[in-house]
Design a binder for these strands. Structure first.
Length: 426
RNA sequence: GGAGAGGUGACAGAGCGGCCGAAUGUGGCGGUCUCGAAAACCGUUGGGCGUGUAAGCGCCCCGUGGGUUCAAAUCCCACCCUCUCCGCCA
């Protein structure tokens, strides 16, 4: 959420910045409501001041046993007027609030201008695109051949875009989760969190899923609860409506969670394999930092995600999102993309964003610099560190051998009981 | 799911429908004392919104949302959450 006062004072600057994102927002309407609301406030508050004053007089008169009938009579009228104005103010306030919650974040000045994802900028590459001396197979074929993925039965048991992992596949998934958690905790200084996988509407609003993107989430029937699309939601909302101490900052959290996405609107895309599923696992990095450090923290966060890929020996590149591809909440975003042989291109496997105070304002997460200073909003960041499902797919594809077996990256072997290779079982 | 108790400021804990944004204690901050510290003593100590160049002024906030009343932390209604007991249960 943007700062309403800031919008009020720099409407043109906001308009200009929003134009770069390609998003259109009803700024004029919003400013009109804002003005309306403030006019109502001035009027109603004056009346309330009057009421408070007279009520005090009534109290004095009654205490002294005198008659206050005429004052009470007069106030009866004023009170009704206050009630009407209050109601009107609440209505305008609600519209204002809703409009404000639907305006996207503004891009940071360092974000390249662009009109679509075509204009994203490659920042760096690591590793060589894997070369094969045989015809490589896509992961869904390798996995089915090895009997470590089962899509068909998942279709029966649940539906499309779900899968069973079996045997070494299941264990590899688990190994990846543990490997990543250990790495970020032990080497990157994150504190581990195991969050709820279901959140309420307040939390979903805090991180920006609601009100605009409700259809992307699974909602529990008859409840104001949602399956989380990412651990970002519960972990960021950990400190909702809190004022943190300066000495507690920066806070780094790492959390494993399952993620659930309706994938509304992506019918027909990535229908095979485990690139796009309704449920996947992810290890997520979340930071709460001083505003003045957030861009430096974003670089570190991105590097932390990249380290995972490096340790797994997976070729990747990092792209920076242009103004048109930042999404709703980010001010700046890098996407590490892994080399996926079956796609013949790099595929997004992480997404590292600085939200500045956009989420903090929604979720009301603040901090105090000094014991006596005014609370300020923290800056929040997060990034996948990294998506497990896509990572498993990338490993299977990049580490496949001519005989159909899959080599296990060395970093994972301790988590696989020393196993070096997945071969077809009995 | 059934029965009961309760939600007040950083924490503990008072609070008759009017003088309560809220006693008191602890903690925090500032100071006196001290070579320094502790103790003691004195002072101070929430958030939001609006208005104003500013100092300031005003409004709102006692789980949340409504209602009654000239006036509500105090009365009424609904919801949420916590705790205890019973039942069920990984």
């Amino acid at each position: 959420m943007l700062d309403l006062k800031m919008i009020r004072q720099n409407p043109d600057r906001v308009r200009e910045a929003l134009a770069k994102t390609g998003e259109k927002a009803p700024l004029d309407q919003l400013l009109k409501w804002d003005e309306q609301r403030r006019a109502l406030l001035v009027e109603v508050e004056e009346l309330k001041a009057k009421r408070n004053e007279v009520s005090a007089q009534v109290a004095v008169l009654k205490r002294e046993g005198q008659d206050a009938g005429s004052l009470i009579e007069e106030m009866r009228f004023v009170s009704q007027r206050i009630k009407d104005l209050d109601k009107k103010e609440r209505e305008v306030q609600a519209k204002l609030e809703d409009a404000l919650l639907r305006i996207p974040n503004l891009p940071h000045e360092s974000v390249p201008l662009g009109e679509s994802e075509e204009d994203n900028v490659e920042i760096r590459r690591w590793g060589e695109q894997t070369a094969f001396e045989f015809e490589p197979l896509p992961h869904w074929e390798i996995g089915v051949n090895l009997d470590i993925f089962d899509f068909e039965r998942a279709g029966k048991v649940t539906g499309s875009r779900f899968l069973f992992l079996k045997r070494e596949g299941a264990r590899l998934e688990r190994a990846l989760i543990n490997f990543m958690l250990d790495l970020h905790v032990e080497e990157h200084g994150y504190e581990e969190i195991f969050p709820p996988f279901i959140v309420n509407a307040g939390s979903a609003t805090g991180t920006g899923q609601l009100p605009k993107f409700a259809v992307d989430m699974f909602k529990l029937e008859n409840l104001d609860y949602y399956l989380i699309p990412t651990a970002e939601v519960p972990v960021t909302n950990l400190y909702r409506d809190e004022i943190l101490n300066a000495e507690d900052l920066p806070i780094y959290h790492v959390a494993y969670s399952a993620c659930f996405r309706s994938e509304a609107g992506s019918a027909g895309r990535d229908t095979r394999g485990l690139v796009r599923t309704h449920q996947f696992n992810k290890v997520e990095l979340v930071k709460f930092v001083f505003p003045e450090n957030s861009y430096q923290e974003l670089e570190k966060l991105t590097n932390n995600a990249e380290t995972v890929l490096q340790k797994l020996g997976l070729p990747y590149r990092v792209t920076q999102m242009c103004t048109a591809d930042l999404g709703f909440t980010a001010a700046k975003k890098y996407d590490p993309e892994v080399w996926m042989p079956s796609y013949g291109r790099y595929v997004e496997i992480s997404s590292c964003s600085n939200f500045e105070d956009f989420q903090a304002r929604r979720a009301n997460i603040r901090f105090r610099r000094e014991k006596k200073s005014k609370p300020e909003f923290v800056h929040t960041l997060n990034g996948s560190g990294i998506a497990i499902g896509r990572c498993l797919a990338a490993i299977v594809e990049n580490y496949q051998e001519a005989d159909g077996s899959v080599l296990i990256p060395e970093a994972l072997r301790p988590y696989m009981g020393g196993l070096e290779r997945i071969t077809k079982g009995k």
